[in-house]
Simulated scan of single mutants.
Amino acid sequence: MDWCQTTLEPDLMMGVFWGLIRTPEAERDWPTLHDKVARCSRHFQVLETILSRQPFLSGDSFGLADIPTGATLYRYFSLDIERPPLPAVEAWYQRLQSRPAYREHVMVPYDDLRGQRIRL
C-alpha cells in the first residue's frame, strides 16, 4: 500500500493521468509526460515480477495489497500510452475485472474530467 501511494501513484495518477486527462492539450508538458510514462513502465515491471509468481499481490488470494494498486490499473490500461508487455499484470487485471465491486467502484468513466484543470 505504501509503495502504491509513494511510488506508483505520483507517477501514474499525478503525472500521467493528470497530465493527459486533466490538463488541456495545449498546456501539456510532453517531456514530463514521457518521463512519467517511462517511470510507470518500470513500476509495472516490478508488479510483473511479483505477479508472475502468484495470482495476487497479497499471495494466493485477493487481499488488502491488491486494493490500492489494483485501483490504479483501470487508469493505466485505459490511457492511450505505450506499455511494455505485462502478461502477469494483465491476467491480474482480468481477475480484478471479474469482481463486481471492482467493476462498480473502480471502472467508472472519467470523460467529464478531460481538460478540467483544478484551480485552487
Rank of each mutant, 00 (worst) to 15 (best):
Y93M: 08
L57G: 00
R22P: 07
E104S: 12
P100T: 03
P24N: 06
I21V: 15
A88Q: 09
D29E: 12
V37I: 15
H43Y: 10
E27I: 08
L64H: 11
G63L: 01
F77M: 00
T32D: 14
H43N: 14
Q97D: 07
P55D: 05
L8N: 05
A65Y: 01
A101Y: 05
S98H: 07
L96I: 04
L12E: 02
A71D: 08
P84N: 14
V89S: 01
L96H: 03
S98P: 00
T69N: 05
G115K: 07
Q45F: 02
A101M: 03
L73V: 05
R99A: 01
E104L: 09
L86H: 02
E90K: 09
L12Y: 01
V16C: 07
E82A: 15
I21L: 05
P68W: 00
T23I: 10
E48F: 03
D112W: 12
Q116H: 13
E25H: 03
P87C: 04
E27N: 13
Q94M: 08
T23K: 10
H34S: 14
M1D: 13
Q97I: 03
I118R: 13
E9C: 04
I118K: 11
V16I: 10
Y110N: 09
I81Q: 01
S78Y: 07
T23H: 09
T6N: 13
R75N: 12
W3D: 04
A101W: 03
P31K: 02
L96P: 02
L47W: 05
E104R: 15
E27K: 15
F77G: 00
Q116L: 14
G115W: 02
Q116T: 13
C4G: 14
L79I: 07
G63V: 02
A65S: 09
V37C: 11
C4H: 14
R103T: 09
G115R: 08
Y93K: 10
D66I: 02
E104W: 08
T72K: 05
D2F: 10
E25M: 06
L73C: 12
D11F: 12
T6Y: 08
F17N: 00
P85E: 15
L79Q: 01
T6S: 14
Y93S: 13
V46T: 11
I81E: 01
P100E: 08
P85A: 15
D60I: 04
P24L: 04
E25I: 10
L113A: 05
G19L: 03
T49M: 07
C40N: 06
Y76K: 09
C4T: 11
P85F: 02
L86K: 02
V46D: 06
E82N: 12
Y76S: 08
P55R: 05
L20G: 05
R119N: 10
V108S: 05
S98N: 12
Q116W: 02
I67L: 13
C40I: 06
